[in-house]
Amino acid sequence: MHALALLAASVTVVGAVMVITRRVAVHAVLYLVVTLLSLAVILVMQGASFAAMLEVIIYAGAIMVLFVFVIMMLNLGHPDSAREKEWLRPRAWCGPGLLAAIVCAELLYCMGTFSGPARPFAPITAHDVGLSLFGRYVLMVELASFLLLAGLVSAFHIGRNRVGGN
C-alpha cells in the first residue's frame, strides 16, 4: 500500500477515536474536521474526486459550521467539562466498548471472505455521477428533496417553538 494512503487511513481512524474521547465539544469538532479531510483524501485516491469535493465543501464546511454554531449557542463551560470527565470513567466504557468491538470483529470476519480480481484504476468524474443522478435515479433525487424539505420544516418548527417557549 501507498505510504500516503496508509497515513490518511491512520489519521482517519485516530481522528475518529479522538472525536469520541474528547471532553470539550469544540476539540471534538476540530478532530472530526481532520477525520473528514483525511477521508476526502482517501476518496480522491479511490478516483472519486467529486465525492471528495462534496465531502470537503458540505461535510467539513457546512455541517461542521452548524456544529460550531450550536456549541457556541449552548455556551458550555467548566462544569460541563468536569461532568464529561465523570461520564467517561472506565466503568461506563467497558460495556458499550465491548459491544462495539464484537460488532467490529464480526464484520471483519464476514468480509474476510471477500476477494476478487482487481480492475484497472479509472476515475469516475462528476459528469458520470450527474448523468446517473439525473437519469436513472431522478426519483431518488426527488425523494432526497422531500427529505430535505421535511428536515427544513421540522427544524424551523422546533426552532419556532423554542422562541414561543421563552
Partner: peptide, 16 residues
Amino acid sequence: AAWIAGGLCAGLAMAV
C-alpha cells in the same frame, strides 16, 4: 441504540 447494536451482533453471529 445498544439494543440495536446487540441485534446487529446477534444477526451477524447467526450469519457467521
